[in-house]
Write a protein that binds this DNA or RNA. Structure first.
Lengths: 160, 160
DNA sequence: GCTATAATAGTCAAAGAAGGTCAAAAGAAG
DNA sequence: CTTCTTTTGACCTTCTTTGACTATTATAGC
């Protein structure tokens, strides 16, 4: 029962395999899946956003393309700061989940830890108005993120 | 005569048979039983709750589904129930930390995971009146505890 | 060099496709 | 009759798909 969007996401990820980036034709891909071209944009927006660790570049006109670039690992200290900035004082569940998935893909947290993080920010935990949930989620998530990076730091020391 | 809810419960359990989890369409099932879709939620809430040893996951929108996951391992499940009972609807930070430390001592979570849990329930994460904090902490903690037990289980699925 | 045209890609709003929530009505049980 | 459980329905939120309209770029003809 895989949804179109899920299939397209899979297809793209298989295309990328270990490459840091790939280029594709939006219209071709759409045709391959028999869908509207804008469907591709939807998939890119919901599964290959910056929060997911990707950057999209593209060009229109003849010979146009869409390039999907996997973001490089930055220094961890900077990365934490970037993430905290992104979280700010309010964040919705999808964005938080995207960030967590990204941490997992970068092997910065184990699978179990990722699931724990998701459990901590899940909306169903909070019986509150939506906007209040976002604010609270940001607060909890911040704390957890900081801990993730502490864990990583310590692991480093232990390695030595 | 058997209540509708009982029939639906039976039906779902037969569907599951030996599987650790199944996926179903809420609307389809409701139609099959000629009842309101929300009836399905009622059955899930009253017969497939965490204390019954199940976890419900779902997704809305096109291709949406309801997934029912059976938690294995009776011994651990009972322990989870005990913990959830202890957490109740409100819990202070020290008590939560004590529980987390206990989980760590029992080797049910790694040290990193324990630290993550503590970060999630830390009082400074919650900018609210004290009593409200305890209530929210309980909600978040509950979610995380359930996740801990899922992590422990075998036959884990791979979607993060 | 310009300009028109074709070839791309992007945006946004609306429709469609699920599932969720909550409170009130209806039924059972005692 | 009262209380607890079940059932329903109106309304809400989330996710996906499409299509009309817009924007950009390359290139073929002047």
């Amino acid at each position: 029962m895989a949804q179109l969007s899920d299939s397209i996401e899979q297809f793209i990820k298989e295309l990328m395999s270990d490459d840091a980036h790939i280029e594709l034709r939006r219209n071709e891909l759409a045709q391959h899946f028999g869908c509207a071209p804008s469907q591709i944009n939807y998939v890119l927006a919901t599964r290959f956003s910056v929060d997911h660790g990707y950057i999209i570049e593209s060009r229109r006109g003849g010979g146009g393309y869409v390039r999907i670039v996997r973001m490089q690992n930055r220094g961890e200290k900077n990365f934490l700061e970037t993430l905290l900035e992104r979280v700010g004082t309010s964040i919705d569940e999808d964005t938080a989940n995207a960030i967590i998935s990204n941490l997992y893909e970068r092997k910065m947290v184990t699978r179990n830890e990722a699931l724990l993080l998701k459990a901590g920010v899940a909306r169903n935990a909070l019986a509150l108005p939506l906007t209040a949930k976002d604010v609270l989620r940001a607060a909890v998530f911040r704390n957890m993120l900081i801990q993730v990076f502490r864990n990583i730091e310590e692991g480093k020391r232990d390695d030595v």
